[in-house]
């Protein structure tokens, strides 16, 4: 298990390879469809959000206010990442994002961006909302809650030993592309 704490350096990212299991700690920001489209269209980051060396988590958590009025994440697994394929590489480059946590993998544009700028794709276990919520220590803040609604807002989360697997690295390898190619070959043999 490789420990990663945000902010993460390019050197740390370049050392990661497909198949590595990682445990992520520090601040990460959720961001999904609405946020990616907004930023890609030239929208500005809200004050207080710093993505330099950070990680974007493709996640629309279930968040409730507890009795003391504090936000509490009660379910927080990853959402499907491929929807951000048109935007991801550009956003990572523009804001200095070093990693993306999601599920299902991404395509060639993001893979190329990871190689060019030093980034990785980190696959969390889809649907494992309770196990992953246990690794969210605190909600620091929320942005765009009114504009985009709770699942689409930017939640600033403090994570502790959040488990993920590197499935796309900065050296041009994608586990997703490899599995898809291998399974296509087997499929053709079985038709």
């Amino acid at each position: 298990m490789i420990e990663l704490t945000t902010p993460i350096s390019e050197e740390q990212i370049r050392a990661l390879k497909v198949g590595d299991s990682v445990a992520i700690s520090g601040v990460v920001y959720t961001g999904r469809d609405a946020v990616h489209k907004y930023l890609h269209e030239g929208g500005e980051l809200p004050e207080g959000v710093n993505l330099e060396g950070s990680i974007i988590y493709h996640c629309g958590p279930v968040v409730v206010k507890d009795d003391a009025g504090e936000w509490k994440v009660t379910a927080a697994g990853p959402t499907t990442s491929i929807r951000e394929e048109p935007y991801q590489a550009d956003i990572m480059k523009k804001f200095g994002v070093r990693g993306v946590i999601g599920k299902g993998g991404m395509g060639p544009k993001t893979l190329g961006g990871c190689a060019e700028n030093g980034g990785v794709y980190l696959h969390a276990i889809g649907g494992a909302a309770q196990v992953l919520a246990e690794h969210i220590a605190q909600v620091h803040n929320v942005y765009f809650l009114e504009e985009f609604g709770s699942p689409e807002a930017i939640w600033e989360l403090e994570v502790d030993q959040f488990p993920a697997v590197v499935t796309m690295d900065s050296h041009g390898r994608s586990l997703h592309a490899e599995v898809a190619e291998a399974s296509q070959t087997v499929l053709e043999q079985n038709l």
Partner: peptide, 24 residues
Amino acid sequence: NAMEIIERNIGLAKEKSQPLCQDT
């Protein structure tokens, strides 16, 4: 490892009476 996390998640969701997956 993925299946182990999935199995743990099933137990945890039931125990805490919270959504198995955040996308309900």
